[in-house]
Amino acid sequence: MEQGEKLRKLKEIKRKALICFQCGVCVGSCPVAFVNEKYNPRRILRNFLFNQSPPQLNLSNLPWLCLHCYACLERCPQNIGLSEVMFKIQHLQFLNGEIPSSFLNAVKQIIKTGRVSPVTPITERRREQLNLPKIETETGVEELKKIIKETGLKKLLFSQEEEKRSG
């Protein structure tokens, strides 16, 4: 599925990996790497140098730990923009079906309600206490669903589900 897209992404990422001259400023800047030795964004990118097609990543959940805080992007002396590359790596993982279920559930939440966090009775009570306007529920959701379908995300999500069910 989506093999062409995968190879294209892989090539883009590899190009960045080729430019990297291994100074480690990204890792030194990374709050995740500071507390979690397993996570080393430099090494994640470097792995792509040797990643042949078809892409088999087996990176487990590691790339999804990126906070996208952009500290590495600001400091990289070779302008690699690792934070942005990480989005591409995550995208590739998503295409490979390697997306953590918590992410998948959160995406579904957005599609269903238009919001990343649910409106609960507690929410409503609190807002009332604070004299805040009542929440219009499910506004814009129809349009959002249409966009998700138009841009192809729905299809991608659907095939993920299929794969998960069959695999």
Binding site: A106, V107, I110, T151, L153
Partner: peptide, 21 residues
């Protein structure tokens, strides 16, 4: 107030999955 708005949307949940979305 802005009517009919949705999640901004959150990048790790959408940009990573599909930049276009």
């Amino acid at each position: 107030d802005m009517p009919e708005t949705t999640c901004c949307p959150e990048p790790t949940l959408t940009k990573a999955l599909n930049q276009k979305t």
